[in-house]
Design a protein around this nucleic acid. Structure first.
Length: 745
DNA sequence: CTAGGGGATG
């Protein structure tokens, strides 16, 4: 087909469609040959049979001596458009244009030129259309409409707008068709000023009663992110139809204003307009984005009552809404009874299961899927990562590599996230090289995953280089990764410096400030921390639990305990994170007793302590000398199946060692599930020296010496300061073991 | 026009 068009176009098309007819045509005309009625009826028959080229072949030069009816040309052009054949449109146009020039140019009606403009443009010949427009003998409003519409559809919105301006200046009045095309141009070039001007014209000329125009206007404003104007335009439509409602709901959804989208949906229903299938789906997605389970349920009821549940789009959106709003059981029930479970619905349910921690169930859905695509693989991959099953993620990736050739930036970005979580820089670098080989390094998501990986793993230099030289556009995520990397790796000054650099490029968000506040806390930059606090308030940032927690921490560490407690007490409902910060804040502000009171109060309020809460309690016990209490907390913690972390063991050793409970200390060490690391032995050694426990001291010395046989400094548990009665403590004759090693804070 | 993505505090 394509080949045929090409051949014909070569044979029949002069470079200009308006070239004067050649001599044979002239000769034929001079001979006075007349178009027979037979030719006309032959052409009509070919048109009726849809045989475009057969029909055109009747357009011999001879038949130009007496004009073919315009309606026949118009039918031919329509057929050419239908076939999408530019060569045919050209031949037809050339034919009637040349016959016209021979007799009387104005014998061809303007409407036929207009149809030709439309046909040429629709077949991809905008340049031909424009040439015809420029050369045609007379133009009417329809000609302008045709060329403006054509330019707009051919992806030349600015050209269309300047044609519109031209038309306007020549005093040709635009009608609603013109307005609709020009509006489309404004949304194409995101030109809200143009839209506003058109809005003025539309109001002046009372096109307001035209639903199509009004709706187009709503869409333009929406596309330009001017949702208030969009809404105003919508409210100006006297009788919005289902499409108008769809447009405003969709624009609210795309602008991230799910609440408004849902509200408009309910208004639409109340107004008695039956929603389009897509509108129902958009409304459900709005609930999903907004985490609005109740509204989502109402919509589900609506779906069932009004017979939308057979549409797979709607059904998938309901499932997705339930899954994302945390009603995973409802989602799964619907999924189980669904007669058709396509890739999309299965992917929704598996990602829902994975994000509520049911990774096993998610994998079962995944394994049972008849068809998988890239998105479903990626969903499974991120599911493992969200469940912090990082090796699971890597295994899945291996399986994926075996079963499909497909992979994209999301895949590799997720694999990188797994490496980041494992702090496995070697694997991360492998993925980096692999991504380069796949040519995926230009994707911002992937580049940011790389910055994050290098930052978190402590290769700040690599992260800096990426940010400096490899990133075309550095966004908030890139900067946030770098800043939190600096903060985590004791480069707090660099973190704050990066923050100020970042601010000249992009707007920070809550994550940025939480890292920045932590950096201030690390190096006790009270003034800077307060500036950030003030800045967040001034700029209207929502100070969420994590930020409050970071603020409490910063103020407590900077010795403004009262500020910390003020933030804490101002909160009507407190998250466990907030309690944790305050309890720890007490612990290192020398207010351990108060911290322990808070610990009790928190549990009295029914908030479950986590490992950090227990850490705060243990630190308070250390500073207040509550050895028994600390021990009971440690037991309680294991009873509540909270796995003690290294810090908790360090605390217990500090608690027992600092207060001279040497027998219990030895017992504790014996029952630890792992061999203490050298840092811990150093502290134990120190305590043995202070309180006297020769046996344990010797063990400590041996472990320290064995761990580092190269060092010239040897640890020895000698009698003069390790005697069991806790005799005199001589100053140490060797280098001072690192004092801060055992400090858990 | 329905499915996957970036997340910081102690």
């Amino acid at each position: 087909m394509k080949k045929e068009i090409k051949k014909k176009s070569k044979a029949a098309c002069p470079s200009s469609i308006l070239l004067p007819p050649d001599h044979t045509t002239m000769a034929a005309a001079a001979a006075g040959a007349s178009t027979s009625a037979a030719t006309v009826s032959a052409i009509s028959a070919q048109i009726a049979a849809g045989r475009l080229f057969a029909a055109i072949d009747n357009l011999t030069p001879s038949c130009s001596s007496s004009p073919i009816p315009s309606s026949l040309y118009a039918s031919l052009l329509r057929l050419a458009t239908h076939h999408g054949s530019l060569s045919a449109a050209r031949r037809i146009t050339t034919h009637f244009a040349s016959s016209a020039s021979q007799f009387n140019r104005s014998s061809v009606p303007t409407f036929l030129f207009n149809r030709a403009i439309e046909s040429l443009a629709a077949c991809g010949g905008l340049a031909d259309a424009r040439e015809l427009f420029d050369l045609m003998p007379r133009r009417d409003g329809g000609s302008w409409n045709a060329i403006i519409y054509a330019s707009s559809r051919a992806g030349k919105p600015t050209e269309a707008l300047s044609l519109f301006a031209d038309m306007y200046s020549r005093g040709v009045r635009p009608n609603d068709v013109t307005m609709a095309s020009v509006l489309a141009c404004c949304s194409e070039c995101l030109n809200p000023c143009g839209a506003q001007q058109l809005h003025g014209h539309i109001s002046k000329r009372d096109f307001q009663s035209n639903v199509i125009l009004g709706t187009a206007l709503v869409d333009v404003y929406g596309k330009c992110h001017l949702l208030a104007d969009a809404r105003q335009a919508f409210d100006g439509i006297s009788e919005p139809n289902a499409i108008s409602w769809n447009v405003i709901i969709r624009r609210y959804l795309l602008a991230g204003m799910g609440d408004m989208a849902a509200e408009m949906f309910f208004r639409m229903v109340r107004a008695g307009v039956r929603p389009l299938v897509y509108t129902v789906s958009h409304a459900l997605l709005a609930c999903r984005d907004n985490n609005a389970l109740e509204e989502g349920r109402c919509m589900h009821t609506f779906v069932l009552r009004h017979g939308y549940e057979h549409h797979i789009h709607v059904r998938s959106s309901v499932v997705d809404m339930y899954a994302k709003c945390g009603a995973i059981d409802a989602a799964q029930r619907l999924f189980n009874v669904a007669p058709v479970k396509d890739v999309i619905m299965s992917t929704s349910i598996l990602s829902g299961l994975a994000s509520c921690g049911r990774i096993g169930d998610a994998k079962r859905v995944f394994d049972r899927m008849q068809e998988r695509n890239l998105v479903s693989w990626n969903a499974m991959l991120t599911g493992y990562i969200r469940s912090s099953d990082l090796t699971g993620a890597l295994h899945l990736f291996q399986q994926m590599r075996k079963e499909t050739k497909e992979l994209d930036d999301v895949t590799l970005g997720s694999v990188l996230n797994a490496c980041t979580g494992m702090l496995d820089i070697r694997k991360g670098e492998e993925v980096h090289a692999f991504a380069f080989k796949c040519g995926l390094l230009s994707y911002p998501f992937l580049k940011n995953a790389l910055v994050r990986m290098y930052s978190k793993c402590g290769c700040l230099r690599s992260a800096e280089l990426l940010l400096q030289f490899e990133m075309g556009e550095r966004d908030r995520y890139s900067w946030n990764s770098l800043i939190s990397g600096y903060e985590r790796h004791s480069m707090s000054e660099a973190a704050l410096h990066a923050l100020s650099e970042m601010q000249s490029e992009v707007t920070p968000n809550q994550s940025t400030f939480s890292s920045a506040l932590a950096a201030c806390a690390n190096i006790f930059l009270l003034k800077h921390g307060m500036e950030i606090h003030a800045y967040m308030i001034r700029s209207g940032y929502e100070i969420d639990d994590i930020l409050q927690s970071a603020l409490i921490d910063m103020y407590c560490k900077c010795r403004l305990f009262d500020y910390g407690i003020r933030i804490f007490e101002a909160q009507p409902s407190r998250d466990v994170i907030l309690w944790n910060s305050m309890i720890l804040g007490c612990a290192y502000s020398g207010k351990g007793e108060y911290g322990l009171e808070l610990f009790d109060e928190m549990q009295a309020q029914g908030i479950k302590a986590d490992s950090v809460t227990f850490l705060g309690a243990l630190v308070s016990c250390i500073s207040e000398g509550h050895v028994g209490l600390g021990k009971s907390y440690f037991t309680l913690m294991t009873e509540e199946s909270i796995l003690p972390r290294m810090e908790h063991y360090e605390c217990m050793i500090e608690l027992l060692g600092k207060h001279g409970h040497m027998v219990e200390l030895e017992d504790f060490v014996d029952h630890m599930p792992f061999e203490p690391p050298t840092t811990m032995w150093l502290r134990i050694f120190d305590c043995c020296r202070e309180y006297g426990n020769r046996k344990l001291g010797e063990r400590a010395a041996k472990c320290i010496n064995d761990s580092n046989p190269q060092t010239p400094v040897r640890y020895e548990a000698t009698a003069d300061y390790m005697c069991s009665d806790g005799g005199s403590a001589e100053p140490m004759s060797f280098g001072n073991p690192d004092e801060e090693l055992m400090s858990p804070l």
